[in-house]
Simulated scan of single mutants.
Amino acid sequence: MDIGDLRNEYSGEPFRRVDLDPDPVEQFGRWFGQAREVAQPEVNACALATSGLDGRPNARTVLLKYFDVDGFVFFTNMESRKAREMAENPAVALLFFWQSLERQVNIRGRAERISATEAMRYFARRPRNSQLGAWVSEQSAVISSRSVLEMKLDELKRKFAAGDVPLPSFWGGYRVRPEEIEFWQGRQSRLHDRFRYRRIDDTWVIERLAP
């Protein structure tokens, strides 16, 4: 199938050096807020790229749950493929694509596990069915059928019917501490605006990149 003629012309507003906040996390927060304002679907969804000791890359979508000066946090089963790869090689990348605004943000850094206490604070806020789902799935493991999951869910509903769902020992969060953050704004004629923040010691250096 030849799909070479599929294309859209970008028409984003100019994105200039003067528009940038000196702090890339503040700049991310600004763009994130604007994406929410235009009702970008799944605004907190991003691609997480990892690779293990074999050097073969993997990518999948995860949901960002909070961010601050220390980094960008998401949650997962800590026995999953992504978790195993991050244990072998903590260098990762996160990519946000906000089509409504013709923008991308690429974050490169190192992933580290957050504390159980911090994970518990978030887990307690999750809907009950999401809490149960964390218990049900041995993420990335081979299973014989969907009915295996449904039977286990029914069993756990009975087990925890009388009280709160506890935090599974194998479920937690990861914080990506950024070393580089690139902001990409689509522009006409494929002459996109790109700015990269690079951390050097305790300072962020800002550079414009060719599209």
Score class of each variant (00 low, 15 high):
1 M>G: 13
1 M>L: 07
3 I>V: 15
5 D>R: 10
5 D>S: 05
7 R>F: 14
8 N>M: 10
9 E>L: 02
10 Y>L: 01
12 G>N: 02
15 F>N: 05
16 R>H: 09
16 R>E: 14
17 R>L: 14
17 R>W: 07
21 D>P: 13
25 V>E: 04
26 E>Q: 09
26 E>R: 12
27 Q>Y: 04
28 F>Y: 01
29 G>T: 05
29 G>W: 05
31 W>P: 05
32 F>H: 14
34 Q>I: 03
34 Q>M: 09
35 A>S: 04
36 R>N: 07
40 Q>A: 00
42 E>Q: 08
44 N>L: 11
45 A>Y: 07
45 A>N: 14
47 A>V: 14
50 T>W: 06
52 G>C: 12
53 L>M: 02
53 L>D: 07
55 G>Q: 04
56 R>F: 09
57 P>E: 02
60 R>K: 06
62 V>P: 00
62 V>R: 00
65 K>V: 11
66 Y>M: 08
66 Y>D: 07
67 F>T: 03
75 F>A: 06
76 T>M: 08
79 E>Y: 14
83 A>C: 13
89 N>D: 07
89 N>A: 00
92 V>C: 00
93 A>F: 05
101 L>E: 03
105 V>C: 12
106 N>D: 13
106 N>Q: 08
108 R>Q: 12
109 G>M: 00
111 A>E: 13
112 E>A: 14
112 E>F: 10
114 I>H: 00
115 S>A: 10
116 A>S: 13
117 T>P: 01
118 E>L: 14
121 R>I: 01
123 F>D: 04
127 P>H: 13
129 N>T: 08
130 S>V: 12
130 S>T: 05
132 L>A: 02
132 L>E: 04
134 A>D: 04
134 A>T: 06
135 W>H: 10
135 W>T: 08
135 W>C: 11
136 V>G: 05
138 E>P: 02
138 E>N: 15
138 E>L: 06
144 S>T: 11
144 S>Y: 06
144 S>I: 12
146 R>E: 01
149 L>A: 03
149 L>G: 09
151 M>E: 15
152 K>R: 15
153 L>E: 15
153 L>P: 07
154 D>N: 09
159 K>D: 01
159 K>P: 00
164 D>T: 15
165 V>E: 10
168 P>W: 10
169 S>A: 12
169 S>D: 12
175 R>I: 01
175 R>Q: 01
176 V>A: 01
177 R>A: 03
178 P>T: 08
183 F>D: 03
183 F>A: 02
186 G>A: 03
189 S>C: 04
189 S>K: 06
189 S>T: 04
194 R>M: 09
195 F>S: 15
197 Y>S: 11
198 R>A: 09
200 I>S: 10
202 D>C: 11
203 T>F: 06
204 W>Q: 06
204 W>I: 04
205 V>W: 15
208 R>C: 02
209 L>N: 08
210 A>P: 05
210 A>H: 06
